[in-house]
């Protein structure tokens, strides 16, 4: 066990936390934040596992994948936020609920 496993565990924790918030909250902005937290958790696990060989240089392939992932996450977030603003403009609310708006 080295310190990188601590970060990997924190990553799984963040993923679960984000998943919980994604299911429980009804506000769309909160859901977008939750998805971003889930993504950060996955990135943390990837980079932590890349650094697990003690003493050696970390594996650059997961690093490259995470950099790509960060940029994809920000563009997906921008698209999701634009959709949220549009939903608000159309329906007057930015929350999901069980009863359908008439």
């Amino acid at each position: 066990m080295s310190h990188v496993f601590l970060y990997a565990l924190v990553g799984t924790g963040l993923f679960t936390l984000g998943l919980y918030a994604l299911i429980v909250h009804t506000h769309l902005l909160r859901k977008i934040l939750a998805i971003n937290v889930m993504g950060s958790g996955v990135f943390l696990v990837l980079v932590a596992l890349a650094a697990r060989a003690r003493g050696a240089a970390p594996d650059p392939v997961p690093h490259a994948m995470v950099i790509t992932g960060i940029v994809v996450a920000v563009s997906a977030t921008a698209l999701a936020l634009a959709l949220m603003v549009r939903v608000r403009a159309e329906t007057g609310r930015a929350e999901l609920s069980e009863e359908r708006p008439e």
Partner: peptide
């Protein structure tokens, strides 16, 4: 799953 991974994996580095 994460904590049982081998701590010495060469990967593609």
């Amino acid at each position: 799953a994460v904590s049982t991974l081998s701590s010495q994996s060469p990967g593609s580095g």
